[in-house]
Design a protein around this nucleic acid. Structure first.
Length: 616
RNA sequence: GUCCCCGUAGCUCAACCGGAUAGAGCAACAGGUUUCUAACCUGUAGGUUACUGGUUCGAAUCCAGUCGGGGACACCA
């Protein structure tokens, strides 16, 4: 009977997993399907390939991958393609090849977008039909609206995405933000790529640390019911324990024993554990709600305890492991890395044991095409061991991609943050400070607004700053935590993008009714300045940017893209007055342009989970 | 000790994962608003890509070594 509480918990969790599976299977799709061929940028690429194939009489198979590049500033051309990969195929110099293609384009009238071209240093540089490109790009953006950028890269695939994964009984640190935000954004990127994503918050709710915690908690006079901030109190208990354990190694042993009792199902300990777990989940929920982060599944490590026992049996049975001198189970070395433990000497499970069980369960239940883990780089070895063992045990199919999407540490004072060592910046503190800083500025700038309006804006700007700071850096590099830098509200920051979006919205309001612009057909669109064309050209690259960010699992590519878009728009804004454009059709065209910019900016910010305020 | 990641302008970062004269923001300097939001725009200045060698048509990017910083390594997660 003593296991009954835990059994009930296991059953309820199993049911929630089953519900998620049903929901996933029933999920129609995450959005409409948009094929690559609908995008002008793809059509441009096709024309380039067509030209090359015609000139040299090649079949598509013979054509190497030719990427369309954006030429450096001193080159006038709109796009460029390097001919170097063709040189070995055609046994000719890149420059000659480029010249041949240029001459073909010059004499041909079969192209819609390619207007002219030039050959420079082995590059095939193309000049687009400005007007037609402008018209088609803008039309496409407005036609697809919030679906502009959707592409079929991972059409119909199932992606199992683990992220956030905070440890219970501790406040979320600024380090958890990286996993939480990266995971959320990657999920959204996959959905734009046509995938069905299952988001799993893999709670750290089991392990020897709870032996430690339950030990000090029992000893203390802390009353969780009456505490105002139970999580903070529990963290303090935990920190005090690790400090004492440093002096007194005996304490560690007691913690391990306590954990053993927990794993054996001691009903009193289970009850305490459940209470602490629920309190933690409640406190996490507040943060997730604030950040607009949503999970399909919240399953902790604890759920996999029974399955982890089976893993231990299976591995032993397969003869992949041996017992060490204290009875611990040692997995023999796999591939490139050394031996590692799967069971402790006292018969309890490890993080890795439960993770192996978890990956097997995910494969079995969800049959995913990919299983992705958004977890810090410092756990790289753990995932090597996990994936290695899961493969040899056939817990994952050979055609299932498993990948550790690692990210750099958030360091404080040049060192790793650590709860135990008291070097911790909590996420809630950071978000609060961010909102405070934003509030101070908005109170100065917009005395005309009500307190409620300013509070809402401060929240959106503050949260946006924190989220964006994390996203705009290359994922794998470490970042040093710095208040001023993280909460900077100028230059390359979320507020620049938010400001630009609000500026466009305000501009549109100022122009009154713009329905006439929406009703324009593509061939009525016209342009006058080079900045208008540069904007449209940049808009055309948005779908590729999404695919690129997705393939490399690096949202910062999208950040850079949006910053360029905003910068181009602000240049346009500074040099052209839409309202005072005398020519009616040119004015209407400009309205279409800014609508398209706004739409793309909004689509991108939505993926990055950065809110767009009404005013600023 | 072994393994992994990183080193780019004074500072914080990019460089589409081998391509053309390495780009932005901040800070500095010089300008711009009686006109659609100046949290903005325009311009100037700032570099031996830590160092040394190698690979090739071509290197910040790949390889080797050196220096410097960070991280992971059996009963934490």
């Amino acid at each position: 009977m003593c296991m009954s509480d835990f059994q009930t918990y296991l059953q309820k969790t199993a049911q929630s997993i089953e519900d998620a599976r049903e929901e996933l299977n029933g999920r129609e799709r995450t959005g409409p399907s948009v094929s690559w061929s609908e995008y002008p940028i793809t059509a441009i690429q096709t024309e380039v390939r067509q030209a090359i194939m015609s000139v040299f009489d090649l079949t598509p198979d013979q054509l190497p991958d030719l990427e369309i590049e954006i030429p450096p500033e001193h080159i006038q051309a709109d796009f460029a393609v390097a001919m170097f990969p063709l040189a070995s195929v055609l046994r000719d110099s890149p420059q000659n090849i480029a010249e041949n293609v240029v001459s073909y384009v010059y004499h041909s009238n079969e192209f819609q977008y390619l207007a002219s071209a030039e050959a420079i240093q082995g590059y095939f540089n193309i000049y687009l039909n400005t007007l037609r490109t402008y018209q088609h790009v803008l039309r496409q953006v407005l036609m697809l609206g919030e679906n502009y950028g959707v592409h079929p890269q991972f059409e119909e695939q199932r992606i199992f995405l683990e992220y956030s994964a905070p440890n219970i009984a501790k406040p979320m640190s600024i380090g958890h933000l990286r996993s939480t935000i990266l995971g959320e954004v990657l999920g959204r990127l996959y959905e734009r790529g046509g995938a069905r994503v299952i988001r799993d918050n893999h709670l750290g709710d089991w392990g020897t640390q709870f032996g430690s915690l339950l030990y000090v908690y029992q000893e203390s006079d802390l009353d969780l019911e009456k505490s105002e901030d139970p999580i903070e109190e529990l963290k303090n208990l935990y920190v005090s324990f690790t400090e004492r354990a440093k002096e007194d190694p005996e304490l560690k042993e007691r913690a391990r024993k306590m954990f053993k009792h927990l794993e054996e199902g001691d009903s009193e300990l289970i009850a305490m554990w459940q209470k602490i777990r629920q309190l933690s989940i409640d406190s996490f929920e507040r943060v997730y709600e604030d950040l607009d982060v949503n999970f399909d599944l919240v399953v902790g490590e604890s759920y996999y305890l029974p399955q982890a026992r089976h893993v231990i049996e299976d591995v032993e049975e397969k003869g992949l492991a041996h017992r060490g001198e204290n009875g611990e189970l040692v997995v023999d070395s796999l591939e490139d890395f050394d031996t590692f433990l799967l069971e402790k000497g006292n018969g309890t499970t490890l993080y890795l044991t439960r993770d192996v069980a978890a990956i097997a369960d995910r494969e079995r239940v969800f049959d995913p095409d990919k299983i992705l883990y958004v977890v810090g780089n410092e756990q790289a070895l753990h995932f090597q061991q996990l994936f290695g063992l899961a493969r040899v045990m056939d817990y994952v199919k050979s055609d299932t991609d498993v990948e550790h999407i690692g990210f750099g540490l958030v360091r404080t004072g040049g060192k790793k943050m650590s709860t135990r060592k008291g070097r911790l910046v909590t996420l809630e503190d950071v978000l609060e400070e961010a909102v405070n800083r934003a509030r101070r500025i908005i109170e100065e700038k917009r005395v005309d607004l009500s307190d409620e309006e300013r509070e809402e804006i401060a929240r959106q700007v503050g949260y946006g700053a924190v989220i964006y700071h994390d996203l705009r850096h290359v994922r794998t590099k470490d970042v040093d935590f710095n208040w001023d830098q993280m909460l900077s509200l100028e230059g390359e920051s979320a507020v620049y993008l938010q400001y630009t979006a609000v500026r466009i919205r305000s501009l549109l309001e100022n122009l009154g009714n713009t329905d006439y612009a929406l009703n324009m057909s593509a061939d009525q669109l016209t342009l006058e300045t080079s900045i208008e064309f540069r904007l449209a050209k940049h808009l055309s690259l948005y779908p590729w940017t999404l695919a690129n960010a997705l393939n490399r699992h690096t949202p910062h590519i999208l950040c850079t893209y949006l910053e360029t878009l905003a910068s181009l728009f602000n240049t346009f804004y500074g040099s052209v007055s839409v309202r005072n454009t005398p020519d009616r059709s040119l004015r209407a065209s400009r309205v279409v342009l800014i609508l398209a910019v706004f739409q793309t900016l909004e689509n991108g910010l939505d993926i990055l989970n950065v809110p767009v305020p009404d005013k600023l």
